[in-house]
Simulated assay, not measured.
Amino acid sequence: MSVLVINCNHWIGYHIVNTLLQHDYLVDGIESDTELDELSMFFGRNSSFSFYNIEDRKRYDTCICVGEHGHLETIDAERVFIINPGKMNDWMDYDTATMIFAAHLYGEWMPMTEKGFYDNQEFIAFQSNDFKENAIYIEDFANGLIQWIQSSNLSSNLEVKSERNNGKVNKENQNSIYIRSSLPLEKRMTALQKHYQLIQRKKNMR
């Protein structure tokens, strides 16, 4: 299966590309002009990854867009998945798209401090109940995404929630998918903080 990932150098796009490559997908990527390109270098040399070339006029089985993309209508794909879409008028007329709304995604390479991160301009503290109940680790989300793109029976809108939130919302909502954490939150946070501190040390050495 061929997959195009739009905004592949976004930290979420980076994890999605890595997960797709680990599952032996052929992946093309479009970089965002507003993101740094350093994350693209990690998979840029993988033989199963290529940067998108509009002149190739390729048709993809699946297109995954992280956030906004101003020219989504120019992409030729059988199915489109848009993760946390931005302005409604950018995507509301795209008939084959599945919108995935996932709050409080977190993981390595995301913009953060030692105390928390911003999600839609709202600061989410790592010690808050909001984070502990609703946060979804990015690799758990990406592995779920692998299953969703293989499914032929999905709603046009999916709300992705943490399993820890299950029971606190209306379970009859068929558009909700609950993600099970593959590791305890405490272990995830220990690894995330170590990664953050390592990146900060490298920045300070430059």
Rank of each mutant, 00 (worst) to 15 (best):
H10L: 01
W11T: 02
W11P: 03
I12Q: 05
I12T: 11
G13I: 02
Y14L: 05
Y14Q: 02
I16L: 08
V17T: 07
V17P: 01
N18C: 12
L20I: 05
L21A: 12
L21D: 08
L21P: 08
L21F: 10
Q22G: 15
H23G: 00
H23K: 14
H23F: 13
Y25Q: 02
L26C: 09
L26V: 13
L26H: 09
L26W: 04
V27M: 04
V27P: 01
D28Y: 07
G29T: 07
E31D: 12
S32C: 14
D33I: 09
T34Q: 03
T34C: 00
L36E: 13
L36K: 11
L36Q: 10
E38S: 09
S40L: 06
M41T: 14
M41S: 14
F42Y: 10
F43V: 04
G44L: 08
R45N: 12
N46D: 15
S47Q: 15
S48C: 04
F49L: 02
S50V: 04
F51R: 15
Y52H: 13
Y52V: 04
I54N: 04
E55Y: 03
E55D: 06
D56H: 05
D56M: 07
R57Y: 04
K58H: 04
K58I: 07
R59L: 13
Y60P: 05
D61F: 01
T62R: 08
C63G: 06
I64E: 06
V66N: 02
V66P: 00
G67D: 12
H69W: 11
G70H: 11
G70D: 14
G70M: 10
H71G: 03
E73H: 14
E73T: 15
T74L: 15
I75T: 06
I75W: 01
I75S: 05
A77P: 09
A77G: 10
A77W: 10
R79N: 13
R79L: 08
R79G: 03
R79K: 15
R79F: 07
V80E: 05
F81K: 06
I82T: 10
I82F: 10
I83T: 02
I83H: 03
N84P: 08
N84E: 08
P85L: 03
P85T: 01
G86V: 06
G86N: 11
K87Q: 15
K87R: 13
M88V: 02
W91I: 07
M92L: 07
D93R: 08
D93K: 05
D93S: 09
D93M: 07
Y94M: 12
D95K: 11
D95R: 09
T96A: 09
T98Y: 00
T98W: 00
T98D: 01
M99L: 14
M99A: 11
I100A: 01
A102K: 00
A102R: 00
H104A: 08
Y106M: 09
Y106C: 12
Y106H: 14
Y106A: 09
E108N: 15
W109Q: 02
M110D: 01
M110V: 08
P111Y: 10
P111C: 11
P111E: 15
P111T: 13
M112S: 13
M112I: 07
M112G: 03
T113W: 05
T113V: 10
E114G: 06
E114C: 07
E114A: 09
K115N: 15
K115P: 04
G116M: 06
